[in-house]
Design a binder for these strands. Structure first.
Lengths: 336, 336
DNA sequence: GGCCCGAATGAAAGCGCTTACATCGAGATC
DNA sequence: GATCTCGATGTAAGCGCTTTCATTCGGGCC
């Protein structure tokens, strides 16, 4: 039983090892700048005293915390959970740790969260998408906090993302090629959400190229319920033979609604998703969707951000999306 | 354009406001200990200088960081993503932030992560389950880091969780009542995982009470694939009429395997899950499972941990689980 | 009217670490 | 052999904030 309640400090270690505190510090942070024999002594002292550096003191003196912040809309969305998970795994172990905050898709809350993370000394930030008050970017610039944006692509900032417009365009094109002409879309909320907006716009544009327009568009909150309700609403229009969804969760909801309405998928109606998260493989039929490399994106974002923090310049990474044709698409019913 | 590159400090604010640094500090941390007029002056100065307290200095001087750490197996598992999300949302805003680390279900990695979080000055920790090297608990005790365990229940530690054994027992009992006698189980890896072990043991015990034993047990890694493969293997034994799964993901995998094998669920085989995560509602048929209040658990854990950090005593919280009968269960085929 | 009390504020001592700079020696150089 | 060089280590000055203790001042009370 150790009686002492307060922790050992560098001074204690230095005294025990018979060296100066500077040497102790060097042993811990730049071992190669210390001769082997000395290092042994110090490390032995560290072990005996069960010494752990004080975080606050370290941060204060070195002006670095080794903390990286991430603000995502919510971890309940598998897309972000996976991305963040991969991001965290790709952080140099022992050097960086991940501080996570969620905004609940609320711009004001996101701003607070960013401020909170920076207030906690975050060395860098991972943010989702581009849409946000320019003042935030200015504020980050003033404070010299590097950041990487993910799940989108653009020119003004460093990002690790993909092209939402191009991704959905490929899907819409496939649906058109199948022969569908009466198409509807279930989109996520586009306000302040460039991912949802990009997908909606990309889809509209592709349709326009073919001289068409959506037969109906519903913009709903993220979740199975939203997708289900929107689908039921849209299908009042019996002419519709295909429904493009802004993400897999919406599509899964739509699929469930279709089942309940007694509609056969894909015979009666084609339903497509976006993201290719796990659930896309366990619906029946399995979901035709657009694969987004969430894991890879998390990894690239981590690499990028660590580079920026190290003072290197970061080259944005644009990852490819890929059409995954599974079981929820088919030519429209009439086309025999 | 502000030319100054270094940030304002308490001294700058104090000087501008014409007060002492002590007063500035009070204004920021205990506003009611300062007279209104003074507070106004100080706050004005804070605004003009765009002042943000230095995190390291604050942590060093106050011996608190306002950082709470959480180590979960992985965020890819919706169960933990939701729990952590709720936990984070329940942290007193502005006061605490969440540092998340994942262990990948690896005990050694978990230990490193715990150490890393504590090294980063975590004021408290959220951990999953009980199974871990006792040395870790000792280490935390020595360092006086409070922690709360979740997703399990037990006596030796403060927890916010539920009874895995009781939860699965209810399910097994229902399956027995339905008339099934030839039952198998697909369990998650039990090594170092008290949740999986509790479920497996709870199920075995309940069966034993009825004088029965599992007709087969497969222990597989988390994931759809594991569930699917295990199901295919187990069903070599054509006598089996019901398969209890340790969690919903395994069950969804099993369900997919059943579809592919041409088995009808629930007519040919009953499949049950555990957790009641989102996917339980979008499989078809929808999954019969055991609901675990993940969100509530995250909230309770946050409350509990914040109490502990504040020096209050924490009363563990045992949350109830609930059987959710949906579409994947039925009496065995022969029982007409 | 003098005294005491408490609220508001100030002075200054750290908190534990990093790091620029100084120092010390031993080998290299001529 | 004296001087120079450079690597290893020590010295000590902060980093920016919180907090204890002291001080001041305006009333209330006898």
């Amino acid at each position: 039983m150790t009686e002492k309640t307060s922790h050992a400090t560098v001074d204690d270690v230095a005294r025990l090892a018979g060296v100066s505190t500077a040497t102790v510090s060097r042993c811990l942070n730049a071992p190669d700048r210390v001769v082997a024999a000395t290092r042994e002594k110090v490390m032995a002292a560290v072990r005996t005293l069960n010494y752990t550096p004080n975080f606050g003191a370290k941060a204060l003196a070195s002006k670095r915390t080794g903390i990286i912040g991430a603000v995502v809309p919510t971890l309940e969305n598998a897309v972000f959970a996976h991305g963040v998970d991969a991001f965290e795994r790709s952080l140099e172990p022992g050097k960086f740790a991940l501080l996570v905050a969620s905004s609940g898709y609320d711009a004001t809350r996101e701003k607070h969260q960013i401020e909170a993370l920076v207030a906690r000394g975050a060395d860098g930030l991972l943010l989702v998408g581009f849409d946000r008050d320019p003042a935030i970017y200015d504020w980050l610039a003033v404070r010299k906090v590097p950041y990487v944006l993910a799940w989108s692509s653009g020119e003004q900032h460093v990002f690790a993302g993909f092209d939402n417009q191009a991704g959905i365009a490929a899907m819409v094109r496939m649906v058109l090629d199948l022969g569908h002409r009466n198409i509807a879309m279930i989109s996520g909320k586009t306000l302040g959400n460039d991912r949802a907006r990009g997908r909606l716009e990309g889809a509209c544009a592709t349709l326009a190229e073919a001289g068409l327009a959506f037969r109906g568009v519903a913009e709903v909150a993220y979740g199975f319920e939203g997708g289900a309700a929107a689908f039921a609403g849209l299908m009042q229009d019996r002419a519709i033979t295909a429904v493009i969804c802004g993400n897999d969760v919406l599509a899964a909801g739509a699929l469930r609604a279709a089942h309940r309405m007694g509609l056969r998928v894909p015979e009666d109606v084609t339903i497509t998703g976006f993201d290719d998260i796990d659930i896309a493989e366990i619906t029946s039929p399995e979901l035709t969707t657009v694969r987004v490399p969430h894991t890879r994106m998390g990894e690239e974002a981590a690499r990028l951000l660590q580079d920026l923090i190290a003072g290197k310049s970061g080259e944005s990474v644009l990852l490819p999306t890929e059409l995954v044709a599974r079981g929820t698409h088919a030519p429209p019913a009439g086309s025999a």
